[in-house]
């Protein structure tokens, strides 16, 4: 299932999420960064009222305040540490990335909350995503200065 937004941290897989989320909006109220938005009818009838994060606008800072307030189990309360989160996985488009194209930039590397773990530098100081560690918070996507943002979080996974 392809979608262009992320679910809040701790979200169960998308096909379960649609059924489990009761659209109560508590996670959006709990988000201190207003990163969690409430989807409208224009996002699709089945998505209406569910929480979405558009990382490019406002990413998740992994404070995890939304997870314990979910009453329905749509956000899994067992997710307590940022390392457990799996909102998606960042992917670098090398042809758009400044560093991979020869200009020096380390915005994504510097801003990654799992510093030097989820995004590392290779021997030529180019950023590389470590898919095992990346939690998909989207901060890299938010800070990427490249004209056509060169790092995107592919939504998916559970947690």
């Amino acid at each position: 299932m392809s979608r262009d937004f992320l679910r809040p941290p701790g979200a169960v897989p998308e096909e379960d999420f649609i059924g489990r989320c009761i659209r109560c909006g508590k996670c959006a109220l709990a988000c201190p960064y207003r990163a969690i938005r409430v989807a409208g009818l224009l996002d699709g009838l089945t998505l209406m009222g569910t929480p979405i994060i558009r990382a490019r606008l406002s990413p998740c800072y992994l404070c995890l305040k939304c997870v314990p307030v979910c009453p329905s189990g749509a956000l899994d309360g067992r997710v307590k540490k940022r390392e457990q989160v799996r909102m998606g996985t960042a992917r670098i488009k090398k042809k758009d990335c400044l560093t991979w194209q020869g200009t020096f930039c380390r915005s994504c590397y510097d801003h990654c909350p799992l510093f030097n773990e989820a995004i590392t530098m290779d021997s030529e100081l180019r950023p590389v995503v470590n898919e095992k560690k990346c939690v998909g918070c989207g901060i890299c996507e938010h800070v990427c200065p490249a004209e056509s943002v060169a790092i995107n979080v592919i939504p998916g996974g559970a947690g």
Partner: peptide, 25 residues
């Protein structure tokens, strides 16, 4: 959830305050 009038009104009030918009709900 999509047919709960009190639910819709309360969530959309919060949405108006948080996001400055309301939904077609």
């Amino acid at each position: 959830s999509l047919l709960s009038a009190p639910g819709i009104i309360s969530v959309q009030t919060a949405r108006l305050i948080y996001e400055g918009t309301v939904g077609l709900e």
